[in-house]
């Protein structure tokens, strides 16, 4: 996850307040939209991104790097712990180490390097495949047409 939950909630509220509610003609519908703003405003302090998938990703990256012979700094080799924000920071640091390893292996042309490189590439693929279980089909057709037909009117 690349975006902060706080920022997402804030932008959703701002969009409703600025771009949606002023253009809703029906008072009941307007009240319901303000109700959504109220809910978004109240749930922010109660929720965070699901921690388990990020912790698993950190664990997997550590295992991968250990197998690739990368010495992890002590803090990154301890049991996975911390807040979601800590885990995201750890994930990013481990991705940096993976990228550095990719770089060094790519400069070599021996069987061992090719095999290690294949493992790192496979990890990148597997991680994205896992993340896809959280990704829903985008509603670009409706967004681009303003909720209307599958085409946009003239410019």
């Amino acid at each position: 996850m690349n975006m902060s939950l706080d920022r997402l909630l804030e932008a959703m509220m701002a969009t409703l307040r600025t771009d949606v509610i002023p253009h809703v003609g029906d008072p009941y519908a307007r009240g319901q939209a303000i109700g959504v703003v109220d809910l978004l405003n109240n749930i922010g302090a109660r929720i965070e991104w699901a921690r388990a998938p990020i912790a698993e990703a950190v664990e997997e990256k550590r295992r991968l790097l250990r197998e690739a012979g990368v010495a992890l700094p002590a803090a990154r080799d301890e049991p996975v712990a911390g807040t979601t924000a800590d885990l995201l920071a750890q994930r990013d640091q481990l991705d940096m180490l993976i990228c550095e390893k990719l770089e060094s292996l790519s400069a070599r042309d021996d069987a061992h390097a090719r095999q290690a490189l294949a493992c790192l590439c496979q990890h990148a693929h597997d991680e994205l495949t896992l993340q896809m279980q959280f990704v829903r089909k985008p509603l670009f057709a409706e967004i681009a047409s303003g909720g209307g037909a599958d085409r946009s009117s003239g410019r």
Binding site: A14, Q131, L139, F140
Partner: peptide
Amino acid sequence: FDDLRMAGMGLQIPRVLL
């Protein structure tokens, strides 16, 4: 930039990387 389509694109990153 508050355009929620930008956030929507962000959520599709695993798909585009694959």
